[in-house]
Simulated scan of single mutants.
Amino acid sequence: MTKGEPAVTDIVTFGGFDKKELLKLAASAERGSEHPLAQAVVKKAKAENLEVIEPKNFKTISGMGVSSEYKGKVVMIGNQLFMEKEGIKVDEAASEVGRLRNEAKTVVYVAYDKKVVGCIALADTLKEYSVAAIQALKKRGKEIIMITGDNEQTALAIGKQLGIDKVYANVLPEKKEELIESIKKEGKVVAFVGDGINDSPALAKSDLGIAVGSGTDVAIETGEIILVRDDLRDVVTAIDLSKKTIYKIWQNFFWAFVYNTVAIPVAAGLHLVFTRHGGVPADWVVSLAGIFEFIPAVGHGVSSVWINLSQSALRPEIAGFAMAFSSVSVVLNSLLLRLYKKPKFQ
């Protein structure tokens, strides 16, 4: 939904902690993480010409945050679930965090020595065509659900901007898989689009996993469809093209079935039971040939061809050619998919 290029927008401190010291503290701890939010904090610190040191005893807690040591004390940076899990009170930050979340910003808490000393707000921009892609999917009758590890206020704000039907927030990576399973139990067919390591279990559990090509290798390996471009409109294109492909498959099945149903009895001469009587053409065959005679210019020729075809079985070489033509017709019909045009977006 977003570009995955968040930037630090606000730094709030508590207990008289200096903003630059807080940023240096956070960046030093986040240096060991590859998460986009962590990289944004490190980038901000470097832009402020602050020293970002190598973290000691670095640990990452999936879906929650990171911890390390700084000057002999433990630094913890992450979401509210992480703080609560570690027994760290966040009441002092409630009003500021609420304000920032209402602005659709992601807030991470910074705790030092088991006490919240500040928080950092980050904002990401929506991908250029996210709204257009979601509108196109909704026009096709699809229900759009967003599953995110972000807090509820921020998730709802982004969901509102995009026109998403349902939002699940504060979802841990392992819970995404369970959530997908519960949606499937409602009788729904689930297609999941993801690009991160945390999305891999959900990609595997869904009926259709769509991985964004710019995402992690794990996500790409797990997905059944890989979007080469980082463009959500390609999700719509993939679904439309898949439907047309299935339609072509059924077309080929139908024509091959009809073709063989008609051609095989003719090749065996079974039609002669109906077109010949007493060694001569049946009355209805002769009557139809007479009608063909009235066709201007070619009537006599058509009539003669009709009589000959109705009174003879296919020669083996002609039957073989007809069988080969059946395969060629299927291939040619399939090649018509090359004429497929991508849907237009508003």
Rank of each mutant, 00 (worst) to 15 (best):
M146P: 11
F192G: 03
K175M: 01
I134R: 07
E174R: 07
K114E: 15
E178M: 02
T154E: 05
D165Q: 01
I134Q: 08
I134G: 06
G159K: 01
N151K: 13
Q135R: 14
G209F: 07
D150I: 11
A121Y: 10
Y129C: 11
I145W: 03
K185P: 02
N151G: 09
N170I: 00
S200V: 15
T216Q: 06
A111D: 10
K160V: 00
S206V: 03
E96M: 14
G194D: 09
G163Y: 01
A219V: 10
K166R: 05
S130Q: 07
E152C: 01
S214P: 02
K166Y: 01
V167Y: 00
V117S: 06
G215D: 04
Q161G: 03
N170W: 00
L122A: 10
A202M: 09
E143N: 09
Y112V: 12
Y112M: 12
E96A: 14
K160N: 08
D113K: 11
E178F: 01
G159E: 02
A133N: 08
Y112I: 14
V193D: 07
E181M: 08
S214C: 01
V110C: 11
T148D: 05
V171G: 03
S206C: 09
I144F: 05
E103Q: 15
V108W: 13
N151H: 14
Y168E: 01
T154A: 11
A191C: 12
L179M: 01
A132Q: 13
G209D: 09
K127R: 15
K142P: 02
V117H: 07
D199Q: 10
V131E: 12
A132N: 08
E186S: 14
L208H: 06
Y112R: 09
A133I: 04
I197D: 05
L162I: 08
D207H: 15
K115C: 10
K175R: 05
